[in-house]
Structure formats: C-alpha cells, structure tokens
Design a protein around this nucleic acid. Sequence first.
DNA 1: AACCTATTTTGACACATGTCGAACCAACCC
DNA 2: GGGTTGGTTCGACATGTGTCAAAATAGGTT
Lengths: 126, 126
Amino acid sequence: MCQNRFMSNTELLPVLESEAEPCCPPLDERPLTAEEAERTARMFKALGDPVRLRLFSAVASHRNGEACVCDISDVGVSQPTVSHHLKKLKEAGLLSSERRGTWVYYRVEPAVLAAMGAILTKAASV
Amino acid sequence: MCQNRFMSNTELLPVLESEAEPCCPPLDERPLTAEEAERTARMFKALGDPVRLRLFSAVASHRNGEACVCDISDVGVSQPTVSHHLKKLKEAGLLSSERRGTWVYYRVEPAVLAAMGAILTKAASV
DNA sequence: AACCTATTTTGACACATGTCGAACCAACCC
DNA sequence: GGGTTGGTTCGACATGTGTCAAAATAGGTT
C-alpha cells in the first residue's frame, strides 16, 4: 500500500446514494413509466427470493432493526450464499451495513420500506 | 399466493393449503419461517420485473381496476411477452382474468395486494 | 509473529427467466 | 365456409440468478 505523504489519498467512494424517496406513485394512480417501473421493480425483486425475505425479516425483527450476520445466518444455505443475499438487499437499498470490530451488522432502511408499503397500501384501497 | 379464492381455470398451483388471508406476519414481527417466506416471496417476485410492474399498474389504474389486454399492451415488448407476464401475475394471485366476448379482461385481486401492503407498512412503522 | 473466527469475494455450475417469432385457439364478421 | 382481429401457447435462445467450495480479507488473541 503506497502511503506516500505527497500523494493525495484519492478516496473515491462510490457513494451508493439511495435514490430519492418519493420514488413512485401508488400503483393504481396511473400507469408507471418505464423508469419508475425499473426502479420500483428493483426493490420488489430484492424481496422476491425466500432466503432474502427470511434474512430481511430476521434483521427487521431483531432488536432495533439491526442484527449481526452471525445472528441470522441460519436459513438453510451456506454462509457465502447468506453474504451474497445480504449484499443484494443492500444494493436494493433495503439494508445498510456497518462493521463493528469482528462483526458486521445489518440494519433495515425504514424509508425505503415505507415507500414500498405506500405504493401498495394506497393501491390496496381501490 | 396467500389466497386464491377464485382464480379462473388454469390451476397450475400446488395449492398447499387454503389459508385464508393472514398469509404472514409483518416482516418485523418475527423471522419468517421457510414456508411463509416461500409464499410471500412468490408475490413480491411477481412485482419484481419492470414490465410486470407496468402491466399491473396499468390494470390497477384503469377504471374499476380492470382492463382489456388490448388497453395495456403498449409496454415495449411483444404481445406474447405481455401474455407471458400477465400469466405470471395471475399465477401469483395478483390478477384474475375473464374472457368477455372477443376480449380478455384482467382485474386486480385487492385482498392479495392489501396483504402485501400490510406486511410492509406495519413493518415500516418501526 | 502465528493462529483463529467472522465475513466477503471468486470461480464455477445448474437452473430459472425474459424475450421473440411462429403456430395455434377463440370469437366475431362477411 | 373463409377471413380478420385478439390473445395464448410452443420452441428456441441468451442472459440472469442461486448455490456451493475454495480462496481471500478483516479483526482479534496469544
């Protein structure tokens, strides 16, 4: 690792910005545009796998909506697979992660979850 | 497929059991079991594709939550593909279909939609 | 340093999925 | 009947996805 003090340590974080919140209107308000559908589908897709759904539910039902990977890894698949799914949930904006010492903690992102719920619940009152 | 009260003919589903509505608890109540996750994921998966989401939104936002295929086929894919996606939405219990004369009408299944919303919105109020 | 545990990444594999054109079925109209 | 329009199914193809074992990384302990 080249830690030359004269080189500015260009730390280019990818800044995984979670896109704005008022993502989309309720599903029954008007037909979604292609872009809206693309964004929204990404979130639903993340919950469209049983293992991911169990992992997400395990994190969400944990104390403070936060859990260590070691607490939720018992879902019947190997640990690399658990890690793979947690990564996907993170990429979809549903979870965030933080390392604290030896362990990595995942936490639910309530805003995104609420947005998904709003899209459905308003639509449910048809 | 938390409930398939009256799906028209094509019964491709294994019909595990006829559990009425309370398909699953909110995601943050307790970790979902494998079977619960399996069932719930199937619904989310159905909305996890942008084309399907647009088709569903088009039906839901139509008058009475019902639309003829010809009214919603303009989503940028071929008509066989539209039919394919509508079938998947139907298999997931989100839509039902009925032929009336020349046209086939798809309609939203509000109970299933409400169940999905409840799973998320209750969880969102953490 | 060497070792251990927790977690992620890599590489490979089988399987599922989205897409299309062509063929097919269903209802209407001449 | 023959023709036309609406919609589904079939067959094929490329791409995506879930899974694992093995290797790699991160932090702690001794």
